[in-house]
Each structure stands twice: as C-alpha cells, then as structure tokens.
Design a protein around this nucleic acid. Structure first.
Lengths: 210, 210
DNA sequence: TCGATACCTGTCCAAATGGACAGGTATTTT
DNA sequence: AAAATACCTGTCCATTTGGACAGGTATCGA
C-alpha cells in the first residue's frame, strides 16, 4: 500500500469499452485513483512495476499475455498488490485458475456497474469479493453428491463395510445373514455402476455417502 | 428489500460480546440499521418473519438451532434475505455448509472490525464477500490432507485398487508379482493405521489421495 | 561398513468374497 | 389382483484375499 490517502488502481484490459467505463466510475470517487491503464498482461506488469498500485483490475482473456499468467507473475513479484478480476467469463476453470494464482476477487463485467468502488474498498481491506454469478461456481464443486437412491439398508451396509467390518461382522450387526448382505452388495454395485467392493467404497467415500 | 432508504439488519449470535460490537459499528452508520437481535437460530427465524430484514448476520455454532440449519430454513422461506456469516470458525466444512445453504458471505470474527459496513453494502448489492482467511478455504479444496508418507509405489498400488482392479490385475499393471503387491498393501495398512483394504481405500478417498 | 529403507519374490494355507443359482415375505402402487 | 420394491435366506463353488513365514537387491546416510 503506497498511499494512505487514496487507493491506487491499475486497469489491465484489452477492451476499449472497459477503459471508458472504469474511467467514468473511478473518476467520480475521491479515494480511488486510476493511475495506469494497460491493454494486456505484459503492459500491465510494466505499469505495476512503475506505479506500485494497491489494486489491479485484471481481465482474463487478453492478447500477448493473458490474465492468468499475468496474475501469477504479479503475485510472485509483488505479493501486496491485490488482483481483482474483471471478466466476461465465469466458468469454473477461469475462476479457480485466477484464484489459485493469487486473485482476491472476481467480478463479471455485467455486474460491474453495481458498484465497483465499494468492491475496491472492500478488497483493499483484505476481503475477497465475488459477484453472485461467480459465487455459484465457488459453491458447486464440493456438492457433486449425486443421488444414487440407495435404500436405507444399503447405506447401512455400505457404512459398516467402510469401517472395515467383514461381511460376516456386518451381517451380524444388522441381524441379517451373509446371503442377504451379499444381496445388498450386488444391488449397491448395480446402483453405483461399479463391479467391485473397492470401487463402491471409494465412490461412496468421495461422494460423502459414508 | 423492504426499504429504499436504509439497509435493515438482524444479528443472530449467542455471544453477548458480538452484540455489543455490532451495535457499535452499525450505530455509527446512517444507511444501515440494526433492527433485531437474536441469540440463536430459532429466535433469528422469528425475528426475520417479523422484520423482513435485508441482511442477516448469522453465527454458525449456537444453542437450540445452529446457523447451518437456520440459514437453510431462512433461505427456503425468504430467498431474498441475504445471510452473511459471522463465525469464529473457518474450517472448510463450516464454510461450505453455510454457502450450500444459501449464505452469500462469510467473515471470521477477527476481521469484523475491518469494516462491517462496507461488507454489508457490498453484500446488499449482490456481491459475495469473504474475509481473506476464509477465502483460503475456497481456493484450497483439493488439499492432499494429512501426510501418511506413503511411498510413490504404495500410492500407485492404492490408486489402481481404487479403480476396482484386483490384486492380480494391479500387479500386472505395475509389473510386479502379487506377492510384492501384498507386501505393499501390508505396508499401506500399517502406515494408514487400518486393518483392511476397505478401510484403507475409504481413508485414502476421503483424504483425496486417490 | 553397517543399518535403514524401499523394493522385490516365493510358498502354503485359511478365510473372505462374489457369482449363479433358487427360493421366500411384506408393502405399496397401478 | 398383478407388478414392483425392498427385504430376507439358502447352497455350491471358483476366485480373491491376506497372514505367516523366508528369502532376495539397490540405495542412501551415518
């Protein structure tokens, strides 16, 4: 953070239109100054070296050097500079690629007008900010828990086997015969689309069924 | 959104201290009003029904009804009310549980003072806001978890067995004998602290080793 | 050079698993 | 009443597994 009085921002985007919009928005604020504008990642890096901004508004897809690579280099070289992504894309890959490389926020361009200044201030205070459409990407990955509509009994069987119990021990615990247990197992294999006990258990574990 | 002029907030937290802090912070703002305060999820739901706030500041761990369940019900019943989590916890499970149930932001209590008002405003505008320590959880999901210091070979064995291959098939694939494979398996059992193949695979799956 | 580690191999045998049958009951839906 | 589900049980037999040995080599660091 170079300045106490105002937040210094560099914009890196290859669309003329974006430059206009951001200029307009930030021109109306007292505490945020647009100190540099670049049209690709390479230029952006140069500007950052020159101006040492607090915040970089970074596009993802750009000629010469894209936002993903630029963010990576920037984050390595100047860990204090915060990268806020402005992108038309909101796919899972882009979002996570940028976040992994050090971005601390991600806005889709459509939501830009909603209040870029607020977002920049929040980002400056160490918050991570996402537009709601991007947020959907953040929440979705750990919920691939498909429903294989196993019955309660089948779930019970699976849980006990996952604990390392043998067929006999499990059967005993559920008060059924090993024949019945094998019957349940076969149904489980069928429903999960697997052929072996190992596959069934791994799949169940990965889907948080056990 | 019931009001144009000011943002209406309900706080749901079982710690007296938090009520004091939030009162102080929001008491100093013109555009944000703390219209209700509850000590648990159940009370929180009642207050929301009564006041229809724009934002709910929600703790996670509370008596009677926790934040996870309360958020779920709230989101179902009043989809327009935005839940912003205030929690001491920042573990992956808590964060994702809340987000899945409809929360649109997550702040750790330690970062609260940094500017709750800004965050509330950004949230109101449809942004998702996270404190930086929580953000780490969002980016990290594919963490290899604990290190059981399995050797490369042992990992290979596990991966193939997880795919449902038999000992023989796996041995063939790795160009070793089944004897060697069993040797590896025993070492794996030892290192993972388990007794059976099933346990080993489940543990490995849950720890993203395979 | 010694010890530790990872890796590899074998044999013998008991136990566990799974496939292929061939039955049964209770409940719910059509 | 027939069909569909979920659930239960058995037998017979091949395959798989894992335990308990008892060996081997190559590499690396003390």
């Amino acid at each position: 953070m170079t300045s106490e009085s105002s937040i210094r921002v560099v914009l890196v985007d290859d669309h003329f239109q974006m430059h206009r919009i951001v200029q307009t928005i930030l021109g109306a604020t007292e505490d945020i100054k647009l100190v540099g504008q670049a049209a690709n990642g390479q230029e952006g890096l140069n500007l950052c070296e020159q101006y040492q901004p607090d915040i970089v508004l970074m596009d993802v897809v750009m000629p010469v050097m894209g936002g993903i690579q630029a963010t990576q280099v920037l984050h390595e070289r100047y860990p204090d500079i915060k990268v806020l992504v402005l992108s038309s894309f909101q796919d899972h890959e882009s979002v996570y690629a940028m976040l992994r490389n050090g971005a601390v926020g991600y806005l889709t361009k459509g939501t830009l007008a909603e209040d870029l200044a607020e977002t920049i201030r929040a980002t400056c205070q160490g918050k991570m900010v996402f537009s709601s459409d991007v947020g959907a990407q953040l929440v979705s990955p750990p919920q691939p828990s498909k429903d294989y509509h196993l019955t309660d009994r089948e779930l019970e069987v699976l849980v006990h086997l996952a604990e390392g119990l043998s067929n006999q021990q499990t059967a005993l615990k559920l008060s059924i015969s090993t024949s019945t247990l094998k019957y349940h197992m076969n149904n489980i294999y069928e429903k999960l689309g697997v052929q072996t006990r190992s596959e069934a258990l791994v799949l169940a574990a990965k889907n948080n069924m056990i």
